[in-house]
Write a protein that binds this DNA or RNA. Structure first.
Lengths: 198, 198
DNA sequence: AGCATTAATTAACCTTTGTTAACCGCTACT
DNA sequence: AGTAGCGGTTAACAAAGGTTAATTAATGCT
């Protein structure tokens, strides 16, 4: 049994008191999947509505800008969902590329299938709601950092809050997420070390 | 009958085929509310879970930073929801202040009451889902602008996409939303005009 | 209408970031 | 082992943003 299934069953139980045995209709339509480091999960322009709960590893969502540069929108790791929001929410081809940064294990489901299951089993609905709200809250928190903090402060906070993630990801992707260039991040790191990281 | 009710009934019908008459259990627990320009809707530290669908007007969510400056997180206007995500999602007192920028009309509901109604009438659930997804998509789009665009480009896009909103809101709040100072926004505007806004 | 307050602009100066390019490891590949 | 490629750092310069303060414009109030 995948850890992911246990985790999600536990969350479902905490939210609604639904026992793992009663969650069978949901988990029977999920399937494990593997991605090698650097493998593309969802290519640009893709229309597939796969939804991945990450068991192990990191997925990077990024876009290729008009000038050819890559812009990393977000990273998702263990215990989080990754999916093309362009496709699931707007039925549009994905503007983003989703790619594994490490060897990654997923629990996968097709969103249309999930919809069908949720329609037939409304008791699972709190699970979707929980993750939607969680993602929304995280997004708003991130927006808050862009509005209130300087690039250096954003970096310091990221290191403080997500030290393990920062350490698992090349700096250039971190820089991109912070909205700055790798050169600028390198200078920020130098400044912080020069000041003794207080 | 408030326009808001009609609007929401229509969305509910489009999503689920539920007729306005069958939505009575939902709309019977909503109430209209009014805010004068500059009135506070949710003060900092508040724990109320009121959820407002904006009929007319604009609500600004902002935070007072440690240095005393205000940082505007977002604006919400006609057809959108405003609510304390700190309180509804995390049951925490609101870090943000929600204040009307104009005379504002709302359709209000208490989130706990909504939960109860949704538990008894799962057929309304798509409505919550629709707005959660919409807000998530909008948040991700906003994050994308911080990651891919310069302050000047973010401003240009905002004017292009939300011209009417920009025109209804003082520049200093726009600047704050863009993550820059009013002084800097003023310079950006000057640059754009000097170049003839291409 | 007149006055007080707030918003927006401008200027001067400083700090930070963007850009380009060179350089230094480190890793992977053959 | 040798080499190509990538990630990260550094340097030099240009461009942009932050800060402070003064000025002008707009708004609100009585």
């Amino acid at each position: 049994m995948l850890q992911s299934v246990t985790t999600l069953q536990q969350i479902l139980f905490d939210l609604s008191g639904i026992l793992p045995a009663d969650a069978q209709p949901l988990f029977s339509v999920t399937r494990p999947a593997q991605l090698a480091a650097n493998a593309v999960y969802i290519p640009e322009g893709d229309r597939s509505k796969k939804l991945a709960f990450i068991e192990k590893g990191i997925i990077r969502a990024y876009r290729v800008k008009d000038n050819g540069d890559e812009a990393t929108l977000f990273l998702r790791w263990e215990g989080q969902f990754a999916a093309s929001h362009d496709t699931i929410i707007h039925s549009r081809p994905s503007r983003f590329i989703y790619r594994a940064l490490e060897d990654t294990s997923l629990l996968e489901i097709d969103y249309d299938v999930l919809e069908t299951v949720l329609k037939a089993h409304t008791e699972y609905e709190p699970l979707r709601n929980f993750f939607l709200m969680k993602m929304l809250a995280e997004s708003l928190d991130l927006i808050e950092t862009f509005v209130t903090l300087s690039p250096e402060e954003r970096y310091r906070r990221l290191v403080k809050d997500k030290f393990d993630i920062v350490n698992r990801v090349p700096d250039k992707y971190i820089a991109s997420m912070l909205g700055i260039t790798p050169v600028s991040l390198s200078r920020i790191r130098k400044r912080i070390h020069a000041r003794g990281q207080h």
